[in-house]
Amino acid sequence: MIYRIEAFDRKTEFLVFEEELPPGCDENLAAIMNWSSKQQGWEGYELSNDQLASLEKLIGKNVFDPKYTFQLTCNGR
């Protein structure tokens, strides 16, 4: 699976940027997102501030900005 953090402008709701999570982080990601089942490849999730902070550690980059809402998307390879 390919996982991405997507940032959307709060006013326009347009996608502003996205960050791809590194391959092989599925176990860590499942724990952060509290998933109990395997992802299918079409899901999208609103991210809490705590989830985003944990995901920032996985990508090694701070992306939070209060101007944006954040989602995690999952796409099959």
Results as ranks from 00 to 15, higher is better:
64 F>V: 00
75 N>V: 02
71 Q>Y: 04
3 Y>I: 04
65 D>V: 08
45 Y>N: 13
46 E>M: 07
41 G>S: 09
47 L>M: 13
77 R>G: 04
60 G>M: 04
30 A>N: 08
72 L>K: 05
51 Q>V: 00
64 F>Q: 00
74 C>L: 09
35 W>F: 15
17 F>Y: 13
63 V>I: 10
75 N>W: 11
6 E>C: 10
16 V>T: 14
33 M>I: 03
36 S>K: 15
7 A>V: 02
73 T>Y: 12
41 G>M: 11
5 I>Y: 11
20 E>P: 15
26 D>G: 07
69 T>M: 11
67 K>W: 06
61 K>C: 05
41 G>R: 11
62 N>K: 13
6 E>W: 07
19 E>A: 07
2 I>G: 04
1 M>S: 12
59 I>Y: 02
25 C>F: 04
14 F>A: 13
77 R>H: 03
6 E>F: 08
19 E>L: 13
66 P>R: 08
71 Q>A: 09
29 L>N: 00
51 Q>W: 05
20 E>Y: 06
15 L>T: 03
75 N>P: 00
23 P>C: 11
17 F>Q: 07
72 L>H: 05
25 C>D: 06
45 Y>A: 09
37 S>L: 10
11 K>L: 12
10 R>M: 02
51 Q>R: 04
72 L>T: 08
40 Q>T: 07
38 K>H: 14
9 D>M: 07
8 F>Y: 07
71 Q>V: 06
42 W>F: 07
77 R>K: 13
1 M>R: 05
68 Y>C: 05
18 E>P: 13
68 Y>V: 07
15 L>Y: 07
47 L>D: 02
5 I>E: 01
32 I>W: 01
29 L>C: 08
56 E>Y: 01
65 D>S: 11
26 D>V: 08
69 T>P: 08
30 A>E: 03
5 I>L: 14
25 C>Q: 13
38 K>F: 14
2 I>R: 15
